[in-house]
Amino acid sequence: MPLLEAEHLSIRFGGLKALDKLDIQIEEGEILGLIGPNGAGKSTFINVVSGFHKPSSGRITLNGENIVGLRMDQIASKGIIRTFQVSNLFMSSSVLRNIQVGFHLQSGIGFWGSILGNSKTRRQEQVLHEKALEISNLFNMGHLSNEMTANLPHGHQRELGVAMALAAEPKLLMLDEPVTGMIAEETLRFMNTIRAITKKKGTTTLLIEHDMKAVMGFCDRIVVLNFGKKIAEGTPEKIQKNQDVIKAYLGEKKDAQNPGPAS
């Protein structure tokens, strides 16, 4: 049984079918790439799975259990954590505080524990603090942990978004264009870190990315969307040769989004 299964998933925005009877299966432990031209419905898929949008029709199941109709936080508490394509941080808080919010589902500190601030709570808080430092170190931000997020360079901001999501210890991590605006070396380092962490923890990952090098190099399997429909699915090698995919992308004029070794 796949970890997550979307069946006949559709959503309309007015007259626009952003997702059109989409079937996607995500297997436990894999890194699944989700690609497609601008406006294909990739972000919408994450938005629907995470409960941000309600689908017009179709089913989504996690381990066979329906999750359509749940609130965002309920879906998050089932282990599905997503990042946002744009503005994905608490900009006026420090790096550490951002990561600390990511611990919300894991903290184990209850209301009265927080109020009383007893020794048990203090120990738990200490552990979380160390874990937060550890996570910020993973992304080479240890020295920036008390910096206000808005002051971080762009690359670190993208990384922090993912760091927060990882702090929530997801079963299924959905990343919406995490490396946008990063230079090639940054991208490589960042993607390697993500892959190392998710593979080590067995986190299933859905990766939306326009950077073809990142997608092809890091995903186990790829699903291609166009106009809300799935037009191809398979290993990176297969996708690169797929005529429909090439056509879909060439229909788009932006060169940067061409599949292939460039970009």
């Binding site: 998050a76 954590i81 589902l105």
Partner: peptide, 9 residues
């Protein structure tokens, strides 16, 4: 929305 996505009710 970001808080909710991290599980905050």
């Amino acid at each position: 929305t970001l808080a909710a996505s991290l599980g905050v009710n």
